[in-house]
């Protein structure tokens, strides 16, 4: 088995999106997660933006090969 690293591979993109949009460190305080076209939600010290819609869009694109 060869570990895939192909940057244009749909599966690699799907795995990357699963990680970069849903996982990783979320800082508390003044840092925000701010994606264009997605409404900001400010909740006290912890600021998060739901990235579900964005990731779903790219999942669909990856599945259809449009990405």
């Amino acid at each position: 088995m060869v570990v895939r690293t192909a940057r244009d591979d749909e599966l690699a993109l799907a795995d990357l999106l699963d990680r970069a949009l849903y996982k990783g460190v979320v800082l508390w305080g003044e840092a925000t997660i701010s994606l264009a076209g997605v409404e900001l939600v400010y909740v006290g010290l912890k600021v998060l933006v739901a990235s579900y819609a964005t990731s779903e869009r790219f999942r669909s694109a990856a599945r259809s090969g449009a990405s």
Partner: peptide
Amino acid sequence: VLPLRFGTVCRDADALRECLLYS
């Protein structure tokens, strides 16, 4: 390296230092 979630932004370096200190 700890990867931050994609899209993380901060106003300026001082505010970011505060975040790092906090965490």
